[in-house]
Computed example of a mutant assay.
Amino acid sequence: MTQARLPSLLALAAAATMLSACSTMTPASRYSQDSLPDSIKVPAGNVVAMETRATGELTYECKDKAAMPGQLEWTFVGPKATLADRAGKAVGTYYGPPATWQAADGSKVSGTQLAVAPSGPGNIPFQLVKVNPVNPANPASGAGAMLGTTYIQRVALQGGAAPASGCSADTRGQRTVVNYQADYIFWKAM
């Protein structure tokens, strides 16, 4: 082998080694918590497992305020939305009650709200949910894409807030549906 070809072969070997190392890496998430309120940030020790965009509707009912009979308000009844990946492909659904996120593979989780924070006029709030332990009576509910999910964040909100008016004695018991869009970020322990 000539000395002129040796540097080229060494460079080729180095490039092959780097490409091999890169092929074993998982893609970095485009998601950052930097601009979110502290109350809804996911604790250290968790990583983004899935990023979805929900498009759907939230249902509200005109009811008496809790512990304030005679005073009425629009009360949240439940969600119904499609979850899509960043490419726009449907990957699951979000429905309730109870609030349930279900992947296309049938796996699902429910959770308990830990915190909310304002997200802007007309929008439902940011939210942090801690995933409930898998139900022993239905252990398959946590398998598949949802297996190991620890937290869910609701961010990038558009719409969904309860109507500002229209809930009165004349409309008690009536329901209204409000469209919304949000990102649901699914986290797993490292």
Rank of each mutant, 00 (worst) to 15 (best):
R175Q: 15
G160N: 06
T93Q: 10
T2Q: 12
Y180F: 15
M18I: 13
Y180I: 04
C22I: 10
W187S: 00
Q33H: 12
P118Q: 14
P133W: 01
A81C: 03
A143M: 14
R30E: 14
P37R: 06
K89C: 02
G92K: 06
Y151C: 02
M18P: 02
V134S: 05
N138G: 11
T2H: 10
C167M: 06
V91Y: 07
P125G: 10
Y184T: 04
G122C: 11
A161D: 13
Y151R: 03
W101G: 02
A87Q: 15
G111T: 06
F76Y: 13
T150E: 04
V129F: 04
Y184M: 08
I124C: 03
M146V: 14
G45L: 06
E73T: 03
Y95W: 08
L72T: 06
S39K: 11
P7N: 05
G106H: 13
E73G: 00
A84F: 03
S168A: 14
T52S: 11
L157V: 15
G144W: 08
M146S: 02
T17K: 13
A162N: 05
Q71D: 04
A67H: 12
A145T: 07
T75W: 05
G111I: 11
D38H: 10
P133D: 14
D64I: 07
S35C: 05
E57K: 10
S20A: 15
K130L: 07
A28D: 13
R154C: 10
N123F: 03
A143Q: 15
E57M: 06
D38G: 02
G106E: 04
W74Y: 06
G111F: 02
K65N: 08
A161Y: 12
T52D: 01
K80D: 13
L128W: 00
L72E: 01
Q127H: 01
L157G: 03
N132V: 10
P163E: 08
N46V: 08
G56R: 08
L83N: 00
L72G: 00
Y180S: 05
Y180V: 05
V131G: 01
Q158F: 12
L157Q: 00
A49Q: 12
Y180P: 00
V178P: 04
S107P: 04
A54W: 03
P133G: 12
A189T: 10
A140I: 01
P163Q: 07
V47N: 13
V116L: 06
P27M: 11
G45N: 06
P69K: 03
P43G: 09
N132C: 05
T149H: 02
G106N: 13
A143D: 14
T112L: 08
M25N: 06
A4R: 15
